[in-house]
């Protein structure tokens, strides 16, 4: 996936190294290989590859990882619908993903 790079520094991803127990789950589940366990601690090795899918945070046993908690899909239609919903005050329409 190295030929596909998205906006740098946009993703919201935080790793609390002091809480990490080095179990390696984040390294297993990440579809973009953002994490690597080095000396029994998870390390973010490719921050800008993160697409905020949330797999790492969901599977971290100590809650050491924080990812943008908005669980909508990363699609323009979803964002458009949620902006429209803010204006109309209704529930956002499904994005169809």
């Amino acid at each position: 996936m190295q030929e596909f790079r998205y906006i740098e520094g946009a993703a919201i991803l935080k790793l609390d190294k002091t809480a990490c127990i080095g179990c390696g789950m984040c390294e297993i589940v990440c579809p973009h290989r953002v994490f690597k366990c080095i000396e029994n601690k998870a390390t973010i090795v490719d921050y800008d590859a993160c697409m905020e899918c949330g797999a790492c945070a969901r599977n971290c046993p100590t809650g050491a990882i924080f990812v943008n908690p908005d669980n909508g899909c990363g699609c323009a239609r979803y964002i458009l619908n949620s902006w429209l919903a803010k204006v109309t005050g209704k529930k956002p329409a499904e994005c169809g993903c």
Partner: peptide
Amino acid sequence: AMNFTGSTPYTSLSGVEMEMRKGL
């Protein structure tokens, strides 16, 4: 093209929102 973000497996929600603010 902006709408295609939802079909790709590498765009983050924060990123899409960021580009939409200006793009839209």
